[in-house]
């Protein structure tokens, strides 16, 4: 036990099977009868994927539990990564509601705090300057309409 490849491979297998099943819902045209249908290629690819996954599962079972012996990362680091991801997702949502410029600034503050920076001068300057430069380049020079929420 303790081999983490196994649950992953099994999960992937289930996903592949579901996707394979979904291929039966695709539409097909009555006119282009001589052509291969939309489902043809995804099914081939999924079949190959399932075959490879099966080999992986067998390989893992034969290899036994030694794969699980790998050390995980320390909890402190894992927490940083997880919080960084939360910040990133919040940033994605923030662009739509708060606007891109504000979200960028908040994101920088968030990441720097999560990573343990307490030098507020650096945080403040980075959160102020970087977003404004990025915003100016994209919005004013490249004329990209960045999402604006209630703020900017």
């Amino acid at each position: 036990m303790g081999n983490k490849d196994l649950p992953m491979a099994v999960t992937m297998m289930i996903i592949f099977i579901v996707l394979f099943g979904l291929s039966f819902t695709f539409q097909s045209s009555g006119v282009l009868v001589t052509h291969t249908t939309a489902a043809f290629f995804p099914r081939v690819v999924l079949a190959v994927a399932m075959f490879l996954n099966l080999i992986l599962i067998i390989q893992t079972l034969l290899k036994g539990p030694d794969g699980g012996a790998k050390k995980g990362i320390e909890p402190e680091a894992a927490k940083r990564v997880a919080l960084s991801m939360v910040c990133t997702i919040a940033f994605g949502f923030g662009t739509a509601y708060l606007g891109t410029l504000v979200s960028m600034a908040l994101f920088i503050v968030g990441i720097m705090l999560v990573w343990g920076n307490r030098n507020f001068k650096v945080i403040f300057l980075n959160a102020l300057i970087a977003p404004i430069i990025v915003y100016l380049i994209f919005n004013k020079v490249l004329l990209v309409q960045l999402p604006a929420g209630i703020l900017l």
């Binding site: 410029l101 001068k121 300057l125 102020l128 300057i129 404004i132 915003y135 100016l136 900017l152």
Partner: peptide, 20 residues
């Protein structure tokens, strides 16, 4: 140098506000 940058940033901020 930092002060100069912050001034510049503030000016840029003002510009944006106006256009918005």
């Amino acid at each position: 140098k930092n002060i100069k940058w912050s001034m510049l940033a503030l000016a840029a901020c003002g510009l944006l506000w106006q256009s918005a």
